[in-house]
């Protein structure tokens, strides 16, 4: 999929499918996606609601509810282990330790009745072998690291005494507590005001520069993607439809959906005379069309698009830019039959 490199990826996801049971039938919310995450890389998963981007993160962490959810994958490789086949007990040790997550809602992710500092200490307790004093020292370091002003005096304050931005900083501190290799950030700035969003984004960029962590950043905001991603995967209705380096993707959006999305965003840095509108809406999970799922909204759609889902192929041999499109992609037409859609 991506350019072959000698460096071992920290996280390698292959053919991940996450299905949900609705009314007795299984429907894939994520269908057969593959990607890898290089050391110290920020990969953005972009897409609109229902595209499967959050589900991808939850699947990697094994947090998809088992009652009506099902995760299948060839492998989800992390530090030599296959997370898709790990028992729950083992998985719990990885969560928050090797891979940790930051959520969208800083208001509900913290326990309102416990002091903030205590919650960071708590995050350390499970995973690190530190004395009590050591844990407190480390927690304070973390709060300083995420630039909470006068962290020492605010250590004993409760979440409601923190603003939304400060709470999100605490969440980041907790995610960083055990020096994870990978951080999964699910829309961490969506609930925040723009000036606070900018501060959080620059904090994340700094943390990435200072440590060797990798990050999967989930967002619907293309501006945010441009501000911090190294590589971008655009998702639509459970598929990765395009994946490329950030510069390449914005300079050369190739999948019709990516292109349309970029033309639909009104920009603050230049005048937009007319705004492009993608007609229609994402089809619901229970009524996904056969073939390419974007067909109904695509201006370029041809016959084959309605019949078979195109493969995600590199634009040129060895190119890190891959696209899932019959019209725009670079496909060996002879391979069509083998890739027949189920």
């Amino acid at each position: 999929m991506t350019a072959t490199s000698k460096i071992e990826p920290v996280l390698d996801v292959s053919n991940l499918t996450t299905s949900f049971r609705i009314g007795g039938e299984w429907y894939p919310a994520v269908r057969g996606i593959s990607f890898s995450l290089q050391p110290n890389e920020t990969l953005a998963l972009v897409g609109e609601s229902g595209c499967g981007k959050s589900m991808t993160a939850l699947s990697v962490l094994g947090l998809v509810p088992k009652a009506n959810g099902r995760v299948e994958a060839d492998h989800i490789r992390f530090e030599g282990k296959d997370l898709s086949r790990l028992p729950d007990e083992e998985m719990r040790k990885i969560r928050g330790n090797g891979i940790s997550m930051i959520f969208q809602e800083p208001m509900t992710s913290l326990n309102p009745v416990l002091p903030v500092g205590f919650q960071v200490v708590e995050a350390l307790r499970y995973h690190q072998n530190l004395s009590r004093a050591g844990r407190e020292r480390r927690a304070l370091e973390l709060l300083d690291l995420v630039k909470i002003p006068s962290a020492k005096s605010r250590f004993k304050e409760y979440p409601h005494q923190f603003s939304g931005g400060m709470r999100q900083r605490v969440m980041i501190a907790m995610a960083l507590a055990c020096r994870p290799k990978v951080i999964l950030a699910d829309e961490p700035t969506t609930a925040l005001d723009v000036t606070i969003q900018a501060q959080i984004l620059s904090l994340l960029n700094e943390l990435k520069a200072e440590t060797d962590m990798s990050m999967i950043f989930i967002t619907h905001n293309l501006g945010v993607v441009a501000a911090l991603a190294d590589r971008v995967a655009v998702m639509y209705a459970g598929d990765i439809v395009e994946i490329a380096g950030v510069g390449d993707l914005f300079a050369r959006p190739t999948h019709p959906y990516t292109e349309a999305l970029l033309r639909s965003v009104p920009r603050s840095d230049r005048d937009t005379k007319t705004l492009y509108s993608i007609p229609g809406a994402v089809p619901p999970l229970t009524r996904m069309p056969k073939g390419c799922r974007f067909t109904a909204r695509c201006e370029l759609a041809v016959d084959i698009c309605r019949k078979q889902n195109p493969p995600l192929d590199a634009l040129a041999a060895g190119d890190a830019h891959s696209v899932r499109c019959w019209v725009r992609g670079n496909h060996d037409r002879a391979a069509l039959k083998e890739n027949a859609d189920v």
Binding site: S277, P279, G280, A281, P283, P284, A296
Partner: peptide, 8 residues
């Protein structure tokens, strides 16, 4: 411009 309403 119109959003298709086939989901109703």
């Amino acid at each position: 411009m119109t959003e298709t309403v086939d989901v109703l």
